[in-house]
């Protein structure tokens, strides 16, 4: 066989192979992943999920399964579908091989839980994370965020302070804690002088009305007992006076809690817009 004939045959064989599309077998999957990534980057999360799923379906080796599940989870998270995001992060963890990747995915899962206000789940997951990877600094940082979003500023401040990255937030939280209304004192005030707790929290009208009702029904109760109208005294005392007395304490506590929550929410909003560090 001469050389040129050999060359011709080789080219025919080559053409036959690529004609059947087997030569670049890995290429479609690669371009599919790039396509999904481009959709994700452009913020088209719905379509991105479809394309990552398509990749996963055709990727028999599951070579990028961890990455794809993570991206699907991030897309769901961006759309506010936290439950689905969690499920996909969990799937991603099954495929992650390196410790670092596992750690990152676990943190992403926890961040989603924090965002969806699953406080207990997030805290349990953080315990698991700390036991598994031994990284208490990261665990404490996210514990801080968990408590912050659950309106527990004292605990949030404590854990932010324990972690290196959260010192700044801890300081800001301490300032808020000092500005907060003291719940115990406000309740005590309302026990002693009905309506005073509401007035202290700035609800003057509610406080004055509460004081007036308590004074009126208190007087009526005492008067009834003085006049030996025991049943009447018991009825007014139980059905009216105690109801308003209890209501005054509950209201004062509710107003104080609302004000405190507002302070924490203002901080969260501020962090959401201006904080440069990692957020849930």
């Amino acid at each position: 066989m001469n050389k040129s004939l050999f060359a011709e045959i080789s080219i025919f064989v080559f053409l036959f192979i690529i004609g059947h599309g087997n030569l670049f077998a890995g290429q479609p999957l690669k371009s599919q992943l790039a396509f999904a990534d481009s959709l994700f980057k452009s913020g088209n999360y719905y379509q991105a999920i479809t394309e990552y799923k398509r990749y996963l379906f055709f990727d028999e080796d599951s070579s990028a399964a961890g990455y794809c599940f993570s991206q699907i989870a991030e897309s769901y998270k961006a759309g506010g579908f936290y439950e689905k995001a969690e499920n996909n992060f969990r799937e991603a963890m099954k495929f992650e091989k390196s410790i670092n990747a596992q750690k990152t995915t676990e943190v992403d899962l926890i961040r989603t839980m924090i965002l969806s206000r699953k406080t207990n789940c997030a805290l349990n997951e953080l315990d698991t994370f700390e036991n598994k990877f031994g990284d208490s600094l990261i665990a404490d940082y996210w514990r801080g965020w968990t408590y912050l979003l659950n309106n527990q500023p004292e605990l949030a401040s404590f854990y932010f302070n324990e972690s290196l990255a959260g010192k700044e937030i801890s300081e800001r939280l301490n300032k808020i804690i000092s500005d907060e209304y003291p719940l115990f004192n406000i309740k005590l005030m309302s026990y002693i002088l009905p309506g005073s707790g509401q007035i202290y929290t700035g609800h003057y009208f509610s406080g004055a009305v509460s004081f007036a009702w308590n004074a009126l029904f208190g007087y009526m109760t005492v008067k009834a007992f003085q006049d030996r109208r025991i049943v009447e005294g018991l009825l007014i005392g139980d059905l009216l006076w105690l109801r308003f007395y209890k209501g005054n304490i509950q209201n004062a506590e509710r107003f104080a809690k609302e004000k405190n929550i507002k302070l924490v929410n203002q901080l969260i909003e501020n962090l959401q817009n201006n904080y440069k560090g990692k957020k849930p």
Partner: peptide, 18 residues
Amino acid sequence: LLILAAVVRGQSKAVNPL
């Protein structure tokens, strides 16, 4: 060679088999 070039170019422009 011309056919080969056409096929290769065609493949690169073809729809993803997925």
